[in-house]
């Protein structure tokens, strides 16, 4: 039986961090309250003081704190990103999660003792790319982009000198992460630069009689008839006309869940499992983390994951195993 996989959990606020720790996280990942991370949403994320408190709370309970600094600095203004790395080091974070080559270079040169992970936003999807980051910047773990099947992940793990972390639950990027300009094409605000996809500032809900129209900027992302559950207008989960016919061409408004595939992921040599959702509330964090904790503990002892755990996280949700199953492509 494989070693127990590490459960890496999201926190957008100190309250969520504590909820994740209490629910059984092995590590919690967070971001500073600015454009240096890819969940730069209003009202979210950590001040320096809050991070220090969060690190203390987590470390008291043997839980790690990882700081995502995973956007790409603006040309001419790398300061905030360097400062974020410096501060994460100073505060005692267990690792930083980086995407930009320049930032990774800075971290490796200036804080050799600060563990470095490669963000999914770096889109390192193959052994040569991962080896590059490992050799150039001493990256110890790579968060794999959601483009690989479990079989491909297993093959990859035999060829690289670093740990792999994979997403197991939450919002699903349909495009290769860090390589998508759909949001800035429609709004001018980019995940890579500003750390926001489909920004709330550009979201509008318009009622047309019984029909609810969701828009991002000027772009109609979807129309919902009465009674149809509405979704947040993320462009890649919108409904568009394909040769005149409405279709969820990129992806249905669904989220990733592979709680039933944990044994396969362990078999594939995965080190850590990541739950998406720093923008979600602490109730979500507590519930999902607890379910995965139980499931992981069951896997570690060779027991089947109980239907109860599955139900906790999947109740009322539309979910997919995404690219982990080949036919998703």
């Amino acid at each position: 039986m494989s070693a127990t996989m590490e459960l890496v959990c999201p926190a957008g606020t100190p309250a969520s961090l504590r909820a994740a720790v209490d629910a059984g996280a092995d590590a919690v990942y967070v971001g500073f309250r600015d454009e240096t991370n890819a969940r730069n949403f209003p009202g979210l994320n950590f001040s320096r003081g809050e991070l220090a408190d969060g690190v203390a709370y987590a470390h008291d309970r043997n839980v790690k704190v990882l700081v995502a600094i995973n956007t790409f600095p603006k040309a001419g203004n790398p300061g905030p990103w360097m400062k974020a790395v410096d501060d994460a080091h100073e505060i005692g974070a267990d690792a930083v999660i980086l995407a930009d080559i320049g930032v990774a270079d800075y971290a490796a040169r200036n804080h050799a003792d600060l563990r470095r992970h490669l963000s999914v936003q770096a889109s390192a999807s193959n052994p040569e790319a991962i080896r590059f980051y490992a050799e150039a910047f001493g990256i110890k773990r790579v968060v794999l982009p959601r483009v690989l099947t479990v079989a491909e992940i297993a093959a990859l793990n035999t060829q690289i000198p670093v740990e792999t972390e994979v997403f197991v639950f939450g919002g699903l990027c349909v495009m290769a992460e860090g390589r998508c300009s759909l949001s800035s094409y429609i709004t001018g605000i980019s995940p890579n630069k500003e750390g926001v996809c489909s920004p709330a500032s550009h979201v509008r809900y318009e009622e047309e009689g019984d029909v609810l129209v969701t828009k991002l900027g000027e772009c109609t992302v979807n129309r919902f008839s009465a009674g149809e559950p509405a979704g947040y207008p993320t462009l890649c989960k919108g409904r568009f006309l394909v040769k005149g016919k409405p279709q969820y061409l990129f992806e249905e408004p669904t989220s990733l869940s592979v709680i039933h595939m944990l044994p396969e992921l362990a078999e594939a040599g995965v080190t850590a499992l990541k739950i998406e959702g720093r923008q979600r509330g602490r109730a979500y964090v507590a519930q999902v983390v607890a379910a995965f904790r139980k499931a992981l503990d069951a896997v570690a002892t060779g027991e089947p994951v109980s239907a109860e755990e599955l139900a906790t996280v999947t109740e009322g949700r539309r979910e997919t195993a995404g690219v982990y199953k080949r036919d998703w492509r």
Partner: peptide, 27 residues
């Protein structure tokens, strides 16, 4: 892709628009 850049290390090559070069540090 950065993998190709890594394989080309030490020899003259071109970086294409699908590699994220946003700033002077990366450049």
């Amino acid at each position: 892709d950065i993998s190709a850049a890594a394989l080309l290390k030490g020899r003259p090559h071109v970086i294409g628009p699908f590699v994220n070069v946003y700033n002077e540090g990366t450049l």
